[in-house]
Design a protein around this nucleic acid. Structure first.
Lengths: 229, 229
DNA sequence: TGCAAATCCTACCGGCGAGTAAGATATCAA
DNA sequence: TTGATATCTTACTCGCCGGTAGGATTTGCA
């Protein structure tokens, strides 16, 4: 008897009657599916599993999605949309590069702590068909390039030490992405202090030794943590 | 017609005749399997696939391994053995904690750049049966705790700034682990300069602001890079 | 040389899971 | 009220894959 996540109950109830609500029901499927894909994996979650969780049968799912892959693709899309939107606002701000990076880290952690954010990182795009995989990887690459650009900004304005922005971006993204493997929302660890430590360690690592006034500076953390709220 | 990795040819040739060589052939299976599990995933690599790659048939594989899971478990084991051995020698050294961390990073990257090291990180232990998964996770946790202990050493000897060693260990391991997702041995990127950047950024981030003499210091990088060689 | 064990093959089983066919029932707009 | 449509179900198909039965062939030691 698999444990029943309380958070999934409302979606289950949505399918209790046959009232017409295509958009809402589609969304409910996505929310349920992403949860299950994260717990077990995509491969080990059958369409029957998802359907059962929602109190319907498998063919009913095919009324809302053409196939299993379409569900996964839309989950990816929702997740990357979150990241793109976040980057939009980070880029728009007029701040030193190092501060932008700190803001990015805090905001990214916030996104990762949600289901769709975690999905972008944890779900294996090798499960996808070639064209879909290609599209997903292109979006991931675009996000990576935007982070590199921010780091380059910081090197240009002198707030970030000279380095290969490509590798630096990998280090930053990697450190945070790994959270998706161990952090569980609702667990014992405090997301706020986690964020603080990530921002502190990584922006210290990036910063120029020449301006220690900025490095462990409160303004950075303050700005970053404000995004976390 | 799937591309044939040149590195797999020797293993293929091992099975060309029926000369008795159980240990060698077992090992050949592991090397071939880990490559294929990394390229496609474990779930998407069938026993037939592995057998075909080795120029034998599926039942022949079952002469060397009881089932598919046993292959995966042994791959894990070989990978974690590498990491454990590396930690043994790091811990044995008499150095400041921060330097040990730097050495760890460099050595870990070296391990990650090999197939079995990457496997420990990339292969999804949710594919395993419950008991096997439990064992694997216990080993992973042990490795994590050893890294935390090194960080605590550094805080005790003053080379590392005060922080939550649990989170710091996650940041370090995460940054490096992520390499397994993008680094390809034999690719254009130079492993030596990658290592240099990782060590520099992360040990700078860990270090106390009070002793900048150590932070971007050459001795750290030198010691760390010697391990890479 | 003979024979026990190791190596490997052909031919199968059984289960799981994605996806579909065909139709029943409920909803809602007119 | 009445159809057109949306929603959902039962009952399948079909291919893939892990694993096995049973036997053929080779190896290398005594």
């Amino acid at each position: 008897m698999p444990r029943q996540s309380a958070a999934l109950q409302p979606h289950r109830r949505l399918f209790a009657d046959r009232r017409r609500n295509p958009d809402g029901k589609r969304e409910a499927v996505l929310h349920t599916a992403v949860r299950m894909f994260l717990e077990r994996s995509y491969a080990h979650t059958s369409m029957d599993d998802v359907a059962t969780q929602l109190n319907i049968t498998k063919p009913a799912l095919y009324h809302y999605f053409r196939n299993k892959e379409e569900i996964l693709v839309e989950i990816y899309q929702l997740g990357t949309d979150l990241i793109d939107g976040m980057l939009d606002s980070i880029e728009a701000a007029e701040k030193p590069g190092l501060v932008k990076v700190a803001d990015f880290l805090a905001a990214y952690i916030r996104i990762i702590s949600g289901d769709f954010g975690r999905a972008v990182i944890r779900l294996d795009d090798r499960e996808l068909s070639k064209p879909a995989r290609k599209a997903i990887r292109a979006r991931n690459r675009a996000i990576d390039h935007r982070l590199r650009a921010i780091i380059e900004d910081g090197m240009a304005d002198g707030s970030i030490a000279r380095c290969d922005p490509k590798i630096a971006a990998f280090i930053l993204a990697g450190a945070v992405n790994w959270m998706a493997s161990w952090y569980e929302p609702g667990g014992p660890m405090d997301i706020h202090s986690i964020t603080q430590q990530y921002v502190r360690l990584l922006s210290t690592g990036l910063s120029r030794d020449e301006n220690p006034g900025l490095t462990p500076a409160l303004p950075i953390e303050a700005a970053a943590l404000r995004l976390v709220e």
